[in-house]
Amino acid sequence: MRVILIGSGKLAYFLSKQFASKGYHLTVIDSDNEEAIAFSRNLKAIVIHGEGSNPNILAQAGAYQADVVLALTINDEDNLIACQIAQKEYGVPRTVALVNDPENRPIFEKLGISVAFSATEIIANLIEQQTSSDEIKNLLPVAEGKINVTEIALSESASIAGKTIDDLQLPTGTLIASILRQGDVIVPGGDTILQTNDRLILIAQPEYYGQLLRLLGAE
């Protein structure tokens, strides 16, 4: 896969390292000259010093052949324009832009960007979903957060211990995907009985997640 990454700083550096280790053909466009030189020494990537929204720089970076352009600078406008030019002028099939203003996320997608994501929004969601309880962990958003995978432990006092999954009447949009019990993995059916100290792997749409946690007595 041919990837063009526009950005600078630690985010660009560590992402580039990951992409390189996955064997992607990577070109980095960095607006900071000294950093670009350092990157070119330390990364398995072609590094170009310049502005990612400059059509000539994009062409130099091989935009005609690129499969995806990632625009990760701190300026929303630069990310938007770089992605649009990559897409409209050079036919890059997939463009991904970082947005700082969360309100720009739907707008960027309306303006033709394949995926716009807001770090602010993601971090805010994470903080919101990280309840203080140690019993909940491994919260993993899938499909841009449209569904979450969570692991929770049933405490000694959980009122649902001894009930079957059918008894629980799980809210729509939620699922107990598996139960970890004393080192075994159980894929539960409706008649599976929950026990204390079970660890449940839950799959839930965020809007029903709170309801599910309350039902399981974890909140």
Partner: peptide, 9 residues
């Protein structure tokens, strides 16, 4: 330029 193009769109 990029601010102008984004705001215009």
């Amino acid at each position: 330029d990029n601010v102008n193009l984004m705001v215009a769109q």
